[in-house]
């Protein structure tokens, strides 16, 4: 390398010559990769921050927008609907992800035990995940109609308890929330099921056999061996699903349009509305920056847990 730099001065010290040096040249790919990264990720982010500082409703031309400081941030923080939507989103995500975890886990546990038709079940359980959200939303809006199929199915179960099976899935504030949660659960349990199925498959059978020989019951094996070993899979499922569920949007738009009132307005829908319906770009940008900070700290928390958990379980390769 020293030789390279020494021979360089022979040429006119232009840009090409400078680039031709090996130590520079080697960096070119990195510069390009980093550049792409900046372009793809950082630029929109910087732009969003910039917009968040503007006083700008899109019903005025952009040319009339001006920087007004942190006013939008203050407005977002002072907007009760922002907090309600956020809280509601956490509630939806919490309920949906919990159900998806429990259901996906149970299904995976059942299917994991080899039995006939296992493949068929796996395929069936995976179908919902592959359906386009719009189709899910549309189908569910038909299923949820109060004289519709879901209530008809529930009728024989509910009537003996004196409950009228005319649940207003789309118009009762709480039922509508659960309509959205259940649609999400229907669609995404497939994913948790898949994660847990591969989690179960990756569990070394010797560990379970060892526990059996030591006299552990099925429950003890589950509680003390399988569950702790599946922790990474659980964390992955929680992180992935929570990330997605916090963005819950399609179902809310398609099933209830955020209603009745704003009882199914999620934070993503709130943002969409502020930006694309109300044209409050500056406000929306500020809200999305705040959300980005909030969500990424959550996600990094999840990833940190995962990495720690993985490290603890790591078996050194080729013991001995």
């Amino acid at each position: 390398m020293v030789a390279e730099t020494e021979t360089a001065p022979r040429r006119p010290a232009g840009l090409t010559a400078w680039l031709a040096q090996e130590r520079v040249f080697r960096l070119v790919p990195f510069v390009m990769v980093e550049g792409m990264f900046l372009l793809l990720l950082a630029l929109p982010f910087v732009l969003t921050i910039y917009i968040s500082l503007l006083r700008w409703r899109a019903n005025r031309p952009f040319e009339q927008a001006y920087v007004q400081g942190f006013v939008n941030y203050a407005r977002v923080i002072g907007e009760p609907e922002f907090w309600w939507s956020l809280g509601r989103t956490f509630y939806f995500a919490g309920a949906a992800v919990t159900l998806e975890l429990v259901l996906g886990f149970s299904l995976a546990m059942l299917v994991h035990q080899a039995f006939r038709g296992r493949r068929l079940y796996i395929t069936i359980f995976l179908i919902p995940m592959m359906v386009v959200p719009v189709v899910v939303g549309y189908n569910f809006s038909m299923i949820y109609v109060d004289s519709g199929p879901l209530n008809q199915i529930l009728a024989p179960i509910l009537t003996p308890f004196g409950v009228t099976a005319r649940i207003r899935w789309l118009s009762h504030p709480i039922a509508a929330q659960w309509a959205i949660i259940l649609a999400d659960v229907w669609q995404w349990t497939s994913l948790t099921f898949l994660i847990f199925l591969s989690g179960f498959a990756a569990l070394p059978p010797e560990l379970i056999n060892a526990a059996r020989v030591m006299g552990a019951s099925r429950w003890q094996i589950f509680r003390r061996i399988q569950l702790p070993l599946l922790k990474p899979a659980i964390i992955i499922a929680v992180v992935i699903r929570t990330m997605e569920a916090l963005k819950l949007f399609d179902q809310a738009v398609l099933l209830t349009f955020g209603g009745p009132g704003d009882s199914t307005q999620t934070i993503a829908f709130f943002l969409w509305r502020q930006v694309w319906q109300f044209n409050k770009y500056g406000f929306g940008a500020a809200a999305s920056v705040l959300l980005l900070l909030l969500f990424s700290s959550l996600i990094y928390g999840g990833i940190y847990l995962l990495v720690r958990e993985r490290a603890l379980l790591q078996q050194p390769e080729g013991r001995g």
Binding site: R57, N59, P173, G259, P260, G261, D262, S263, R273, Q277, F278, N279, K280
Partner: peptide, 22 residues
């Protein structure tokens, strides 16, 4: 009026609250 969607939304949300008895 400019911002009419937001005027509409304010109206809709509050009407819904009345219809729900809140």
């Amino acid at each position: 009026l400019e911002g009419n969607y937001e005027y509409f939304n304010v109206l809709d949300k509050n009407l819904a609250q009345v219809m729900q008895g809140n």
